[in-house]
Every structure is written in structure tokens, then in C-alpha cells.
Design a protein around this nucleic acid. Structure first.
Lengths: 317, 317
DNA sequence: ACCATTGCGGCCACTTCCTGACCGCGTTGC
DNA sequence: GCAACGCGGTCAGGAAGTGGCCGCAATGGT
């Protein structure tokens, strides 16, 4: 710990952990003279991290918001919180690419004991309420393995359960991860089938990095999202529903409830048609209930049946 | 950038951004000789960050998972993703203290432009579906201002809208933030009223740090959570409901749906009583619907009425 | 008005270490 | 066996980091 750079890092961490530090206190904490502390502060400033200083009695040093993000010095618990938050955020389908990169960074440098804790926390905090809507919770181990594979161009091997339920083992050169709605997909080159394939992340059972890298292939698409969308819609996934409902309310009122989740087409000032894709029928039903307007289900019939069931039970309650 | 410590930091960032780096490539990137690169790698190892190296053709350096968390070097987008994810995680009431600390760290060092983006993103991505349940979305600006005030013992000033709807301006010495269910509370010493008060974060309109620090007072409680709970339950909040429902299903089946949200008491193998506190009646109704069992509402009458309304509409659909 | 506290920056001498340049060695994969 | 690569030793020159001084400016309390 006698190193200069390590001390600078520790100074940064101290300044991130508490706002104001009196100079002498910092110097003592770092085990250097006050003069050297000033030089360390200068060093931080040269690195682009603005450190405010206040003279006078009760003065001190404080880390200010600057142009560049300083390295985040987080402790175990904070790293856990970050990882858990990003995971549950990814599981809702928001976040996208940069969130995935951030998760990858956090997980990659996590000590093994923390990863174990992360697994434990994930399995215990999955909110049962929303689980029906977001589908199977994302397995962070699978997701980060795959993400690392994409980033570092390393072949991965995993067991895959197809829509029909038949399991298979795959050796794939991962190209890209795409979030489509609440679902994550991997586009990669399947080395056994000698062709490009699209995999649903929550259908991947266990993924392992093989450690062998590969040269990137030219992908058969221009826009990944479009490609995946066409592939996914072409398949008729078991359990996937195309919901269409006519609601006796203004399109705006419905949009205010469902947000970007569904497409809402205005038919008249007091009527609109809502279209969405989902795995769970309970989510749309909840949305329809909270809109507070009369509606009729165009498709699928399962939704109409479910509405009838809920209606009967709610009516008797 | 001629500095040694800055170079070490950059090396760390490079290793976090991509898995394998051939030595010569890294050396070139950092503008030093290969020998110096080796020494830099050694330095990182001395700091506790394990760097794997693979000799032979196609070898290189890779950052491995170690005992300590290295400083996270994230870019703007990743920081945004982290902040957004933590916010929405906090808004669900999970996460707790360490998540709040992490958010505080991230936000504190964020450049101003990023904070602006964060505001924009927050307001545009608040999921309308769950908004009814989680209540007013957390305002990250308020939350982080308050959190910083607690951490750094700085007085804060804010406008508060009481449960009755009457606005007031407060000058408070913040002591602690507490998450109680889906809601965040601030416990602090109100300097105008000369007494301890509990504030609901989502009722705080705008919060500003005054910059004046204060000496910590001895709080009038041992356990903050207990204190807040007693204070909050004592008040009869407008819009707050105590829900009690008898469900014709096993307690385990109900628990599997509602998770830790509600208290479930088993009455018989096929009947149980569910008790919860909530602001929104739609959330419990959704849970009851998805349980798929018959139920009867004990209280409040509003819930029974709402169930009846939903039931009528669902039945006609 | 005076004082203590705190931060700022210059100066200097001493010490440390950092750097680039060699070298030979072991490992890996072709 | 060869090439590519990482490892570690050594050496000399030079560039830092360091602590101790100094006077100065700003702040807040007495």
C-alpha cells in the first residue's frame, strides 16, 4: 500500500464515501503528510476529477461532479445492489445494451463469494407478482456468460430447450444479444448446424464459455433487431399470444395505462383497439381492469375465457 | 496522461472493457514499452486485482475475478443504465440501504449533462402499468439530495405536501432514510417545529441542500424502522388501505403469488386469510385474480366494490 | 479587529521508482 | 523445431514523489 497510485485510488474512494473531509484527517487516513495530500488532490484534478476545496475553519475537500466519470469505488454490498438492480431491470426488457454492458462489467470482476450471493438473492427476490408477466426470470449466469462471449468473441456451449420442448446441446459463435420487448435473444452462428440461429435466453439452460475465440463472421442481416423480430414472429411459439381487444375508452386513456407495451389504435373518440404480444394473459387483463372501461376480446379466445373466470370470481366476492 | 497512476487506471479500464488483450496491443494502446506494461500488470496484481496471463501464440492478458472489487470504470451510457436501474429498483421498495448508497455514489459523480439525461429518461420510462401499485414514482433528484444530506450531515430545505394536502416549507436536519414496503421515508429534525418528524419522500416536492452542516442529534428512537412504522400507522393516511381477504386456497398457494408483500395466515388446508397494506386496490385485486381461487373481501368495502366492478366488466367482455 | 484553522503553491534536497533497453528462459500452438 | 508470447533479472539514467519549510489568502468565531 506504499504505492502512489494505490493511495490516489484510496483517496478517490474516501471522497466518494463521504462528502466533506478535512485535510488533516485525510492526510492521516492515507498516512502521508498534508503537503503530499495536496499533491494527491492535484493529481486527481489533473486526471479530470474536480475536487472542491473550502478554506477556512471547518473547510475540507469534496468530490464534485465533473466532465468525466471517475472510477466507481464500490464495496461488496453496493456491487450486489448494482447487479441485482440491473438484473431485475433487464428482466423487464428495458435497459438494453448499455445496461447489459454494465452488468457484464460488474459481474466479471465480482469475487466468487459475491456471485454466489447474487445467485441466492436473485432466486429469493424474484417478485412473484410480476413473475407471470416478465416470464421466466433471467438467469444472470447465462446472460453474462453469453454477453461475455459476444464481447470477447468466444465460442460458448449450452443446452437449449426448443419451443417444442426438445432439448439439444449447442456450440455457438455468439454475435449479438437483442432485447425484444420483455425477452432477450441471442443471435449466433451454430457450429453444428452450420447456420445462423436465434435463441431465446430464457430457454438456455446452462451456458459455458469454451475459451476458444473466433474470427467474426459477416452476419446475414443489416439490422439485428429487425432480423430477430422476423425470425421470432415467423415461429409460432407455444405460449405466445397475440392479444387484440376493443376498449370502450379513448386511445389516450388506454395508452396512459399500458404505456409503450401495447399498440393502441383509435377507432373513435370513445373506442380504440389495443394490440399486444405477450406470454401472460394476466398482465393485459390487469391493464384492462385498471382502465376502468368496458371492453370486448377479439383474440385470443383464452383471454376471453380468463376474463370470464376472473369476472365470475370477482362478482361473487 | 504521462502519469503512472493514470496509466494504471486506463489499463484497468481496458481490461474491464474487453476480455483478452495481447500484450503488444496493450503496450501500444498505453504508449509504453512491453516491459513497462508487464510492470503495470504487476502493479495491478499487487493492488489485489488478479490479472490472468496466457503465454503462447494468441495469448494475452485478462482480468479475473478476485478477492476485492476493482474500481468500476464505466462510460456515460453505462452509468446512466446503472442509475436508471437502481432507481426503478428502489421504487419497488427493494434494494434498501446499499442500493441507495450506490445510487448516491453514481449520481454524485455524474456530470451535469448526465443528470439532465437521467431526469429525462426517468420521466419517460416510468412504466404506467405498475405505476398504480408503486405509487408516485420516486424522484431521483429528491431522493439523492436527501440521501446526500443524511450521509454528509447537511441541512436540507424542501417543500412538503402533507397527507391533508396542505403545503409547507421545511428546514430539516436529515437523519435517516428508511424503506417501508414500497415507500421511502425520511426521519429528520424539523428546525422550524423544533421536533423530530417523519416525511414521505414522494410528498417532498423540491429538495435543496443548504450546504450548512450540523452536529448529529441523539435520535428519539432505538430502531428507525420500528419508529417510522409506528409513526406511519398512527396517522390515518388518506388513500391508504388495510386489506383483509379470505381466500379459498392454501396459504402456500397464495404466498407463492404475493410473495413478501402480504401476510398470509392459514385457516385451514383450503382456506387462508391475506392481510396487507397498500395504497392501490388494483394490485391486490390482480394478485387475487392470478391466484385463481374464490375469495371474499373482509375489508375495505372499496375493494369489494372494485372487485364487483371488474367482475361485471370482465363478465360482459 | 484579531486569531485560529484551513487550503494554496513555491522552493529545495533527498530518495524512490519508473522507464527503456537488453538478456535468457519456459510455455504454447502450428 | 519454430515463432509468438509472457516472465523475470539486470542496469543506468532520469523523472517522479516526498517531507519540510515558507508566506499568502480565505473563512468564521471571539
Amino acid at each position: 500500500m506504499a504505492n502512489t497510485s494505490s493511495r490516489t485510488l484510496r483517496l478517490l474512494s474516501l471522497l466518494q464515501a463521504r462528502r466533506y473531509w478535512p485535510g488533516p484527517r485525510l492526510a492521516e487516513e492515507l498516512g502521508v503528510s498534508a503537503r503530499t495530500l495536496r499533491r494527491d488532490v492535484d493529481r486527481l484534478r489533473e486526471l479530470g476529477y474536480p475536487v472542491d476545496a473550502q478554506p477556512g475553519v471547518d473547510g475540507g475537500y469534496a468530490l464534485a461532479a465533473g466532465a468525466a466519470l471517475p472510477p466507481l469505488v464500490v464495496d461488496d454490498d453496493e456491487a450486489m445492489a448494482l447487479a441485482v438492480a440491473i438484473q431485475s431491470h433487464l428482466a423487464t426488457g428495458d435497459g438494453g445494451d448499455s445496461a447489459l454492458r454494465a452488468l457484464t462489467k460488474v459481474v466479471q470482476v465480482m469475487p466468487r463469494r459475491l456471485r454466489a450471493r447474487l445467485d441466492a438473492v436473485r432466486s429469493s427476490t424474484t417478485s412473484a407478482i410480476w413473475a407471470a408477466e416478465v416470464g421466466a426470470p433471467l438467469d444472470h449466469a447465462v446472460l453474462s456468460t453469453v454477453a461475455l462471449g459476444c464481447r470477447d468473441r468466444e465460442r460458448i456451449r449450452f443446452d437449449y430447450v426448443a419451443a417444442a420442448g426438445s432439448p439439444s446441446s449447442r456450440l455457438v459463435e455468439p454475435a449479438q444479444l437483442v432485447a425484444l420487448g420483455p425477452r432477450w435473444y441471442l443471435v449466433g452462428y451454430d457450429l453444428d448446424r452450420h447456420d445462423w440461429r436465434t435463441f431465446r435466453i430464457d430457454r438456455i439452460v446452462t451456458a459455458d464459455s469454451t475459451g476458444t475465440s473466433f474470427a467474426p463472421r459477416t452476419p446475414p442481416f443489416d439490422d439485428v433487431a429487425t432480423y430477430v423480430r422476423s425470425r421470432v414472429l415467423g415461429d409460432s411459439h407455444a405460449g405466445r399470444h397475440r392479444v387484440e381487444v376493443v376498449v370502450e375508452a379513448s386511445a389516450d386513456a388506454v395508452r396512459a395505462r399500458v404505456g409503450r407495451w401495447a399498440a393502441v389504435r383509435s377507432d373513435s373518440p370513445t373506442r380504440c383497439t389495443m394490440t399486444m404480444e405477450t406470454d401472460s394473459l394476466e398482465g393485459p387483463l390487469f391493464a384492462l381492469g385498471s382502465v376502468g372501461a368496458q371492453f370486448s376480446v377479439v383474440s385470443p379466445p383464452e383471454l376471453a375465457a380468463l376474463a370470464h373466470d376472473w369476472g365470475a370470481r370477482f362478482g361473487r366476492a
